[in-house]
Amino acid sequence: MNKILLFAGLQEKAGKAELQLEAVNKSIKEVKELLKDSYQLEEIDTSMAAVNEEYANGDFVVKEGDTIAFIPPVSGG
């Protein structure tokens, strides 16, 4: 099982900040597609992903217990 974290506009659109998903052996790209379909999160295409608090690319394959965060374009400062 994996913990998925959503932020900013993604979080608002999905109506939740956190969810559980069985994503083991899926790539980040596949997880994005899954979430896009389940929550109508088109914006996830322009979001980065982080696995266990480090940026990961679309080919990264998820392992059991990984926390995956989707990070829309940032706007701090």
């Binding site: 900013a8 982080a50 940026y55 829309p72 374009p73 940032v74 706007s75 701090g76 400062g77």
Partner: peptide, 19 residues
């Protein structure tokens, strides 16, 4: 690179700002 986001509130709406 720092995962921080701002939401602007205006007189006629609000929006998360992506850089």
């Amino acid at each position: 690179i720092v995962p921080i986001w701002k939401k602007e509130y205006w007189e006629n709406g609000e929006e998360w700002i992506g850089d």
